[in-house]
Structure formats: structure tokens, C-alpha cells
Amino acid sequence: MKAFTYERAKDPVAAARAATRPGAKFLAGGTNLLDLMKIEVETPTHLIDVQDLKLDRIEKTEDGGLRIGALVTNTALSADERVRRDYGVLSRAIAAGASGQLRNKATTAGNLLQRTRCPYFYDTNMACNKRKPGSGCSAIGGYSRQLAVVGTSGQCIATNPSDMNVAMRVLDAVVETVNPQGQTRAIPIADFHRLPGDTPHIETVLQPGELITSVTLPRPLGGTHIYEKVRDRASYAFALISVAAVVQKDGSGRVAVGGVAHKPWRVEAADAQLPAGAKAVTARLLADARPTEHNAFKVPLVERTIAAVISQARTA
């Protein structure tokens, strides 16, 4: 771990301003950042602790949705009565991730910014375009069982490891930010995470200093909310793949998939195929999949898991 300086920001704009300093990073729960700093995958020179910003409330929005403060913990969000009632897929997705201890500390904004678990990203002896732009990708041609099958590039095949993000994507959440000039903007979750392309180190559309202040959920969708996470062990493991779905009584609905891409993966044209069944949905969803020898199983696995979800929704 490199030495760094530390400050506790008093308000969001001040935090954003402080973060324009080269080498600065926001620190919230620290469940991901601090681990990565210890192994020098992350080497910030300045940390801006945002825990005093009072962004820890969940409140109703004017149009009947929910506004979730950036610092609401995963535990609080998953357990919130309104979330459990109206956005069950989000509650379940969060509870399927990490461990109780981590969820107590991890925040909503931090989860959005969670970095990949690609083993080559974690090993600083290995080339990684995410960690060191231009150094190459040692995951390509290496051990890639956990890695992405769609939306990949010749520079990176990492996945976004979050469970929460998959549910946020299926719900069409909106990320709200403030920049160092005090300007706010609202970024649809679909646009928030980027595909790796030639710049896999740039993972979101956030600009330098831009601070997430909250995430809003649109008004409740109704329907049956399902989160299916497939993993080798029963708990405390990242998803091989996961499926977040909201299915209506008439069989229509929406579906997003985790563990397959650099971002939570949803294709609106695939949603429309839900009444036609899992094969049709998957054909659209993963039409451009280019899996590796190690992770080719993810494509049929997504189809079979969506079939499980459809079947579950029918009997719900």
C-alpha cells in the first residue's frame, strides 16, 4: 500500500472539488477500494472520505419512485420495507451478494463502482489494460471461466461483479451526480457503465471529480420480481451468471443478466421475447456473444436460468 493523504469532506460539492486533484479517490465503505490498495492494484495518493455527507436516506420521489442516498448501506437498502415490497428484485440481488459483514459496510454508490474480480486484474505481475492501460490483457488466452462472453474487446474480457447493478439495470434506475462546479445530472443506468473497448480502465461515464449523490428508482413496476444467482458454492461467491427479472401476469416483462459482460447486460429487444420463452430471449440477449473455451457454458446457462425464471414467474 502506498502512502496517501486523507480528508473528510463536509458537503458533496466540496468533495467533488477535492476529487479533481490527480490521484484522488472517494472513500465510502472501503470494502473494495481498501483491499485493492493493500495489493497496490489501486494506488490513490489522496482519499476523500464521504461518510459525513448525510447521503444515507431512502425517500420517495415526486413521481412515486424512490431516491436512495449514495451512502445507504447494502444491508439497509436490501432490508428497506418499500424496497422489499415494490422492488423485490433489488432486495434479493443485494442479499445474494458478499457477506453480512460486507453488506453492512458497503454502500449503494460504492457497489455501482465495484471493480472487476478478474484474477489477472488482481495480480500485479500480470499485464492488465484496466490496471495499467496499454500493458495488454493476460486474461485473454488465460483462465477465463468467470469472465465475460459478450460486449468484450480485444483489450479486456472482464465482468462487472455486482449483483445489485443487475437489479438496478432491470429496474431502469437513474444515477444522480454532482460535479465540482455544483452541477447535477441524472444518468440512466443503461448509460452509466461502459463497455471495455480500447479503454477498459474507464469503467463509467463519470467525469473527473463527479460524485454520485443518489440513485433513483422509477415508480414500482408490479409483477413478479426474481433474482437467480448461479454459483459454485451456495454463499459468498461471485456469480457465474445471474438473472434479474420482473415478469408480469401476461408473461411480458424485462430481464437483465450479470456475470456475462463488463456491465449489467440488458437488451430491450430481448425483453420483448419473454412471452416466447428462454431460447428466444437468449438468442437476442447474447446474439453477439464471443465466449472463450472456459466460459462457453455461460451461454446455455443463461438460457436455462431464464427458463427457470419464467417457470418460477408462472407459478408465482
Binding site: 474480480r117 459454485d232 458454492r233 451456495a234 454463499s235 459468498y236 461467491a237
Partner: peptide, 10 residues
């Protein structure tokens, strides 16, 4: 995280 051994839930 990468080398998984059983947890209680298993």
C-alpha cells in the same frame, strides 16, 4: 475469493 472452499451454506 478465487479458490473456493465450502461455506456453511454448502
Amino acid at each position: 475469493a478465487g479458490y473456493e472452499v465450502p461455506v456453511h451454506a454448502d
